[in-house]
């Protein structure tokens, strides 16, 4: 974990939010826009430190709300609600398995809109809901699940290509070197 990884994650979140607002194809073909922030939060919670999780929740949520009709700041807590429990239990999760990533991505992508809509309704807002919202939830869940392993691969590739790598420890120790040269005998 270093500052470079945090920067990459935040830059990706910024571009993901912009892509969701600018690219209308998923909404046109599937009837719903796929949210990439929950999938990115899964990656962050499993691979980065707590400050990065907090920064992604704050900035990702604010950027999303800035381009949306959502009240500003309403997406911060749902993002945190996804990232926080995963961060606490991340040692128990098989993070390198694509299936585990898929399941986590699906759960996060389903929970995030539900929590946001719940907060909107509790704040006397009137979001556009109906039976079609169930289809939108399914699209978001499946889309988010499919996007999670891709985001893992992409972020790992970025980290590998551009970031500093952890220096591997050598097993060589001077004090345990086996001296193979012949001893000079004293005559």
């Amino acid at each position: 974990m270093n500052a470079f990884q945090t920067s990459i994650i935040l830059a990706f979140a910024f571009l993901a939010v912009f892509a969701e607002a600018a690219l209308d194809a998923p909404r046109h073909w599937l009837g719903a826009q796929i949210d990439l922030l929950p999938a990115l939060m899964i990656f962050t919670a499993l691979n980065a430190g707590l400050p990065t999780v907090a920064l992604l929740a704050i900035f990702g949520g604010l950027w999303f709300d800035a381009l949306s009709a959502n009240p500003l700041g309403i997406s911060i807590l749902p993002l945190l609600a996804i990232g926080w429990p995963i961060f606490l239990r991340r040692e128990l999760i098989l993070r390198d398995l694509p299936f585990a990533q898929l399941v986590l991505g699906a759960a996060a992508s389903a929970i995030m809109p539900l929590l946001t809509v719940l907060m909107l309704l509790s704040g006397s807002q009137q979001p556009l809901l109906g039976w079609g919202s169930l289809w939108q939830l399914i699209v978001m869940t499946v889309g988010g699940a499919a996007a999670t392993p891709l985001i893992f691969s992409l972020m790992n590739w970025f980290n590998h290509a551009l970031g500093y790598q952890v220096r591997t420890e050598t097993s060589f120790r001077l004090d345990r070197e086996i001296r193979r040269n012949r001893r000079k005998e004293k005559f």
Partner: peptide
């Protein structure tokens, strides 16, 4: 956890004029 919750609650409780300005500033990044 507490810091993020405080930030979120603070932003949500801002007056409408301040929220609009903040939203405008964040939107201008794009």
């Amino acid at each position: 956890l507490g810091a993020v919750i405080v930030v979120a609650v603070l932003i949500l409780s801002l007056p409408t004029s301040a929220t609009t300005r903040l939203k405008s500033a964040l939107g201008s990044w794009f």
